[in-house]
Design a protein around this nucleic acid. Structure first.
Lengths: 218, 218
DNA sequence: CGCTAATCTAGAACAAGTTTCAGACTTGAT
DNA sequence: ATCAAGTCTGAAACTTGTTCTAGATTAGCG
């Protein structure tokens, strides 16, 4: 069923969502990629990780199974890419309304809680993305790293820092560890929302330890 | 091939490794369980998560596939149980040589680094266990919780506390989050051993914030 | 001992991720 | 417009986790 039109040509990839991979995609390829990611997010929103079945994604996005695998070499790759996509939205949204806390710790905690609330609105989607992220093996490292960097950027934004010290970067790393792991315990029903909140607030206190100005904590 | 002898009978389960599940196991059942866990650990040590294939585990442990599934209802259950098993060893080993640091934070960091070094000796096994742990869904919550409690016990041991305050328990939770997540980044090649060490040391500083003696946190 | 229920075994069958392949379609260049 | 190379499609095959079944074996009991 060759149902595609005849308008196409080279198409410069816009830099916003650019995967600086290797080959620039044509418009139709970009459209396919987008359809796939959309289908992935949609299915994930329904039933989480298990509901994202490669055959279904292929069908929903009007693409052959083989093509799906050409774009995303595994289910994990697909879901991590889906997460990258969502993270971009999130970062944009968060940027519009910066957190209002007095201290960096408060602002980071507030930002993470805001993100957490967003995830609560689509718990199944969150499940699919986070499970994929932590289950990813070495073959997905580059993509996972990109997600990690994006997350770091969000946290640093919240802290309001231009040139973080190594200590502060360490604190941010630990915050991200806690964020991921706390999400997992929540998703698997082993921790309540309240508990996650406490964990986030607890770890954010680490930031206070690294304040160069007034030294000392609470 | 009914190759089993005729010596058996009721067999009291010893309390050390007791799964207070429901039915006490006969000796032969206990032996099967042990063979299965051994095979699981062995295969995991070879090739990590992927190398633990249910058919192979069944064959290695001289048990039918159906029986394997009766003992462990999924691959994840099996690997989490394998982790429980290993954790017990670990806890026993650690108990023998308590950490020597001056502060609670130092002792916890030292203990975790010791555990980390043990994992480095069997990185594939670590991979299988940790991946299973973080991939586990709600159906495995009880078992994962038990692993979590065991880990908490180890950390509290290292801190040398009888009655931890709620604040200290929060710190311990965050430490465990960091521990798990840092392990994952290491296993998937996104963080070096040195980086994991830094992360552990960083998060352990949280403990200092909760010391009740010399001025308090918050 | 002899019985009944529970357990175990071998093996087929099923499900979903992944791979493969032949043939049709597109793309980019001539 | 035409050709070679690259891409996409549909469908089958393969892999490994999981389920199911029928028949043997074992456990606990009278």
């Amino acid at each position: 069923m060759p149902a595609e039109a005849k308008v196409d040509k080279v198409a410069k990839v816009d830099a916003s969502t650019a995967r600086p991979d290797s080959a620039p995609l044509t418009e139709r390829q970009e459209a396919r990629r987008r359809r796939i990611l959309h289908a992935s997010a949609q299915l994930a929103s329904r039933g989480g990780f298990d509901a994202v079945q490669m055959r279904e994604v292929a069908e929903s996005s009007q693409v052959a199974l083989g093509t799906l695998y050409r774009y995303f070499p595994s289910k994990i790759h697909l879901l991590v890419a889906t997460m990258q996509d969502q993270l971009e939205h999130m970062h944009g949204t968060l940027r519009k309304k910066p957190p209002a806390g007095d201290t960096a710790a408060q602002r980071v905690a507030e930002t993470l809680m805001r993100a957490f609330r967003a995830l609560q609105r689509e718990p199944h989607l969150a499940d699919a993305m986070v499970r994929a992220l932590t289950f990813a093996d070495r073959s997905v490292s580059p993509e996972v790293d990109q997600v990690s960097h994006q997350t770091t950027a969000i946290v640093l934004d919240a802290m309001g820092l231009e040139n973080p010290t190594p200590e502060q970067l360490s604190a941010v790393r630990v915050i991200e560890h806690t964020w991921h792991s706390a999400l997992i315990t929540w998703l698997s029903g082993r921790a309540s929302i309240a508990q996650v909140k406490i964990d986030i607030e607890t770890v954010c206190r680490l930031i206070d330890l690294t304040e160069p100005e007034d030294r000392g904590g609470a």
